[in-house]
């Protein structure tokens, strides 16, 4: 299988379909789930009976409650959000209910094995304020959730398998800009949560990143390499659990830390990682911790405009050079 190219969207689909064949308690739910705006589940009704496919109404909070109840009583729902932004409509069902239910009920048999596929996340369609945000950090605050942010087809495939098999609510982010990107699947095995991937080794600076910022961080690092600057790039893959060990070990080696994310800078994932480094690795740092992140602005509509408020490859290169 190693040489066969597959898109990020098709890799997610393949993981879901394989898991559905393996376990008949897995159901898929989502608005336009059979047509599938992003092509992930298009035509899934050809593969499975409609008893396992639930087209959903425009009731985000309600259907996340439904998924929570179904998950509690034996099913393993995989629920699609058409756009990441729509998460805000379901914050109660996800963050107050699914996340806390087990704790609230005293643990034991209460388990919520549900995957919320936060699809269509970020820029890429120029759809503006309510269809292009990066909500990863909004949910990072809540104990009880796990958060997956894959940047490649291989990671999306392996992490989706883990997400479906997990006995907790998992938010699985899928990015508009990545759906069409090709990659190869390295294995049919699930990829464990909380294990970051060093996508490029280096000794001069550590770049920690995830999701859509990961490919451009790697591209920037490769350009820097031609100039003799050796950046190490860490793709977190899951931001909760967070592979703190990998980050700290790298900082110990490079003594410099930059966090790159497309999400808004204020209260972002980068802020959390910077704080961890400041608390636990300050002795190793010999420069400021920098965050290269989205601008503190509402997302403008239009592809020409949205691209300007998230970091570019050049922004990453400049940040690295400013530290050296």
């Amino acid at each position: 299988m190693a040489d066969e190219k597959i898109t990020y969207a098709k890799a997610i689909r393949q993981a879901i379909v394989e898991e559905m064949h393996r376990d008949e308690n897995i159901i898929v739910m989502g608005q336009d789930i059979r047509q599938s705006v992003w092509g992930v589940t298009t035509g899934i009704d050809n593969d499975f009976d409609m008893s396992r496919i639930y087209p959903l109404p425009i009731s985000e909070n309600g259907f996340c409650g439904v998924a929570t109840g179904a998950a509690m009583t034996g099913l393993r729902p995989v629920v699609e959000f058409m756009y990441g932004d729509f998460l805000l409509l379901a914050m109660d069902a996800i963050c107050n209910q699914a996340a806390k239910y087990r704790y609230m009920c005293g643990g034991g048999e209460f388990k919520i094995p549900v995957v919320f596929r936060v699809s269509g996340t970020g820029i890429g369609s120029g759809s503006g304020q309510h269809h292009a945000q990066y909500p990863e950090s909004w949910v990072m605050h809540f104990p009880g959730l796990k958060i997956v942010t894959p940047s490649t087809a291989n990671d999306a495939y392996g992490l989706m398998k883990t997400a479906i098999r997990d006995n907790n609510p998992v938010l699985f982010f899928e990015y508009k800009q990545l759906f069409g990107k090709f990659g190869t699947l390295e294995s049919t095995e699930p990829i464990p949560f909380g294990k970051a991937k060093i996508t490029k080794e280096g000794s001069d600076v550590t770049i920690v990143t995830y999701g859509t910022a990961a490919p451009k961080s790697l591209a920037a690092a490769q350009k820097l390499e031609t100039e003799g600057i050796h950046a190490e790039v860490i793709d977190l893959r899951t931001i909760k659990p967070l592979d703190k060990e990998c980050i700290l070990k790298s900082v110990e080696k490079t003594n410099k830390l930059i966090i790159v994310e497309d999400s808004i800078k204020t209260g972002g994932v980068g802020a959390e990682i910077a704080a961890i480094a400041a608390e636990e690795a300050v002795g190793y740092l010999d420069g400021a911790i920098l965050r290269v992140a989205g601008k503190d602005t509402s997302m403008p509509a239009g592809k020409m405009l949205e691209i300007q408020v998230v970091p570019s490859e050049n922004d990453i290169i400049k940040a690295v050079k400013s530290l050296l």
Partner: peptide
């Protein structure tokens, strides 16, 4: 099956349990 402190949050959870049945 649990009594959420948010009024009305349990209504959709009930539908999910019924779906599972």
């Amino acid at each position: 099956m649990g009594r959420p402190g948010i009024q009305g949050a349990h209504l959709s959870i009930a539908v999910g349990i019924a779906l599972s049945i």
